[in-house]
Design a protein around this nucleic acid. Structure first.
Length: 778
DNA sequence: ATCCTGATTTTTTTT
DNA sequence: AAATCAGGAT
């Protein structure tokens, strides 16, 4: 090693690592399992290992595939490796599974009968397509939602079961119906030159299984493969890794060859106690059985925690001990006992929010920074009430998750236009934009065009380009469609794609178009999209225009950072299809952060609030129904271990769900924490709720007891009925304030007590029930 | 083809 | 409480 020109750097790299960390970093070839407890310096180990591999010449940057769970994690890791190496990490494949697969598939698309311009459908698109397929099969959509059907298909794909394989295993009428839909859904996806999220993994596996030469190329390209958050991998991802490195378990599957050869240089990092994505096919067995899959695997346990106080760790350890069959670990910390964990019960979710915000105010007064504080909850819907309280106290905050930028209708429309330009077979995008803005092409005309395209076996683009040939199309529709396609044709030239029915794969055909930012700008004006929004003259439309301007900006930024000449549109589309909202989180901006516990994974904050700790909320009732209590407990474990110094756990006696009030018992997880770790006002220990939790009274009984304490306070939905102005008392143009949306002005008064309010904050215009909405005169 | 109204649903978590 | 959707009116 002393001969290494980087010897100095190497020593620096290993300094300050503890023994197991160093072992993981310096491990050479062969399988490696790093069991990294929460806060044990996992990212540090990963980044140092990447740098180490390069410094010791075990791999060039371009020979490393490093998989992370989110794009944000990839970006952060890339930054840190760059800092360690003192130079660029260019060439390194540091990205999510989905991004890596999309990249491979674009390069090899022709092998699978796709063009490299294939479209990636997100969940909403996939559901829409599922609905279409279900309609075609004649499914009663009253009984089965497209979401439920698509979930089933998605689960099948995650287990690498194609439609035909799925059909062989059906065991109920429901599954038989799904099998029918799956058939059509698959056929249509392929016809449209499109893939859903699950296909990215599935098709890559197909590719590597079908073409040994392709597989060999990638096996030799990636001399080292690293995977973060390994406990959250699903079967498709497992198989993909197997194909990329060789080895792994000999799947007893039917048909195809299962065991493969390779270098087996696979390093995985994970924590079985933090496996929380079972609902999307993650299989905790992947990490539990890693040592069976790779008998000679080196196993390193990271148990020293550098994040939290011992009190917080003891609580986490105690809770997770209630799960069975995990890998034994014991987190410890040198940071001292620290404060007790604060447990509070509040009357309802509003009181809970006020308590949380009050504490935040106090902490900030005492010198804490807002960005050192995060509020966690189980479901996105719970953010509203907390936001409301924060707004009232004028505390700046950010919400991670919820409605995402790329899911807004106008953004999806713009992206759909781009997709259609790149992929003339993209029926979902065509359907989305053909009458947006309104062009007089309705459902009937659309169906005729689609049917015609299908009958001829040509792309929608081609069918729509000759509207006069579509049977049954009216004169008006022919004219409208003709005008629309003429515009699209022009845009297509701008995009640099060959005119007419392109889709022609091959080469970098579409390389000399205008920059993406310019293209978006051109498309929004030439299609009349912006004009139509302007004509609406509402603040809401104004907001949409601003969002679109932001998208144009995103396009320009992309153009500035991308190499010239390389099918920029395709790369741009691929990139935006795979961004998650978690990627937009910003640090150090003086903002309190609100997010779901899932989104909080991988983060840490000095102060953490976990809200809604009631049975039915957290653990979630649906999880309980599905027997997923252990996963919920792991989720709670994740929540608790985000905290560095202060941890608050709150629950409410009463909480509004849909319209009515519900009464929840305190979460069973609270009772799994040793009481000496808790700072919980004595009084609450003897509340009816707490007692009934212990003796197992039913929810209804406990509600009745609570009701007795304050007679008449809550019979039915009366609780929320405060004195409010009647609808008629709001007048046009009046200034109002809404608890969540802030200041606004009444722009309409409608029958039925409905008022229309335009809000200053985000420019949105909303219809509110004056009687029930938390809105009052300013 | 488009608009309006009433009914239904929404709340798991996300690449 | 609010968004989405389907069916019917225009």
């Amino acid at each position: 090693m002393s001969a290494n020109p980087h010897a100095e750097h190497l020593q620096e790299l290993l300094e300050g690592l503890n023994e197991p960390q160093r072992e993981a970093v310096t491990h050479g070839e062969g399988p490696l399992l790093i069991l990294a407890g929460a806060g044990s310096g996992k990212t540090r180990v990963l980044t140092h290992r990447l740098a180490y591999l390069i410094y010791t010449d075990q791999a060039q940057a371009g020979e490393i595939l490093a998989i992370t769970f989110t794009n944000k994690a990839a970006r952060e890791m890339s930054e840190r490796v760059k800092r360690l190496l003192g130079r660029d990490t260019r060439g390194m494949w540091l990205m999510t599974f989905h991004a890596a697969c999309a990249r491979i598939l674009r390069a090899e698309a022709a092998r699978l009968g796709y063009t490299r311009q294939f479209t990636i459908y997100d969940q909403a698109d996939s559901r829409r397509l599922t609905k279409r397929s279900a309609d075609a099969v004649g499914v009663d959509l009253k009984r089965f939602t497209p979401a439920a059907i698509h979930n089933q298909i998605s689960a099948a794909k995650n287990r690498l079961r194609a439609a035909a394989d799925y059909r062989e295993t059906v065991a109920s009428p429901f599954e038989e119906m799904v099998a029918d839909v799956y058939d059509i859904y698959e056929r249509d996806l392929h016809r449209m030159n499109a893939m859903d999220f699950d296909d990215l993994l599935f098709r890559t596996v197909n590719l590597l299984e079908l073409f040994e030469d392709v597989r060999e190329r990638y096996v030799s390209t990636f001399r080292h493969v690293l995977v973060d958050e390994y406990q959250d991998t699903n079967h498709a991802q497992y198989r993909l890794l197997q194909l990329l490195v060789g080895g792994g378990r000999e799947a007893p599957a039917r048909g195809a060859r299962t065991s493969v050869t390779g270098h087996r240089n696979l390093a995985v990092v994970g924590d079985d106690s933090q496996s929380v994505y079972g609902f999307r096919g993650a299989d905790i067995k992947n990490i539990l059985e890693f040592q069976d899959d790779f008998k000679d695997a080196r196993v390193v346990k990271l148990e020293q925690n550098y994040r939290s106080t011992q009190t917080i760790l003891s609580a986490a350890n105690a809770v997770i001990a209630n799960n069975r069959g995990g890998i034994a670990k014991r987190l410890w910390s040198e940071l001292g006992q620290g404060d007790q964990i604060h447990v509070r019960v509040l009357e309802d979710e509003h009181a809970e929010a006020r308590f949380v915000v009050g504490e935040i105010e106090r902490l900030v007064d005492e010198g804490a920074s807002r960005d050192e504080i995060a509020v966690l909850y189980r479901t996105n819907a719970m953010s509203r009430v907390i936001e409301d309280a924060l707004v009232r106290k004028e505390i700046a905050y950010q919400v991670i998750g919820g409605t995402k930028f790329y899911e807004r209708a106008e953004i999806k429309d713009a992206i759909a236009y781009l997709s259609l330009l790149a992929n003339p077979f993209d029926v979902v995008s065509f359907t989305r934009v053909v009458n947006s803005p309104r062009r007089g092409i309705g459902q009937t005309s659309l169906s005729r065009v689609l049917a015609h395209a299908e009958a001829l076996g040509v792309s929608v683009w081609e069918a729509a380009s000759r509207p006069e040939e579509v049977p049954g199309l009216g004169a008006a529709a022919i004219k409208a469609l003709g005008r629309f396609m003429a515009t699209m044709e022009e845009l297509r030239k701008l995009a640099g794609a060959p005119p007419g029915d392109g889709g022609e794969e091959e080469g970098e055909a579409s390389s000399n178009g205008v920059p993406v930012g310019d293209l978006i700008e051109a498309l929004l004006t030439q299609t009349g999209y912006i004009e139509a929004l302007k004509a609406e003259r509402t603040i809401e439309a104004q907001g949409r225009i601003e969002n679109l301007q932001e998208l144009i900006e995103v396009g320009h930024e992309f153009d500035a950072g991308v190499a010239e000449g390389q099918d920029t549109l395709g790369v741009f589309l691929q990139q935006v299809a795979l961004v998650a909202d978690a990627d937009t989180r910003t640090d150090d901006e003086g903002l309190v952060t609100l997010m779901t516990v899932h989104n909080a994974k991988g983060t840490e904050y000095p102060t953490i609030f976990v809200t809604g700790l009631e049975d039915g909320v957290f653990p979630h009732s649906r999880a309980l129904e599905e027997g997923a209590l252990e996963e919920e407990r792991r989720l709670f474990y994740v929540a608790v271990t985000r905290a560095m110094r202060e941890l608050y756990l709150t629950h409410a006696r009463r909480r509004a769900a849909f319209g009515a009030q519900t009464y929840g018992l305190r979460s069973r997880f609270l009772d799994e924490i040793p009481s000496d770790l808790l700072d919980e006002p004595q009084e609450t220990m003897f509340r009816p709720g707490a007692i009934s939790a212990r003796v197992g009274l039913s929810r209804a009984a406990s509600a009745a007891e609570l009701g007795d304490r304050e007679p008449g306070a809550w019979s039915g939905r009366a609780a929320g009925t405060r004195e409010r102005p009647a609808a008629s008392s709001f007048r046009l143009g009046e200034d109002v304030i809404h608890a969540a949306f802030g200041d606004g002005v009444v722009t309409g008064v409608e029958p039925g007590g409905v008022i229309v309010v335009r809000f200053a904050d985000d420019g949105s215009e909303r219809k509110l029930m004056a009687e029930y909405a938390p809105v009052s005169r300013r």
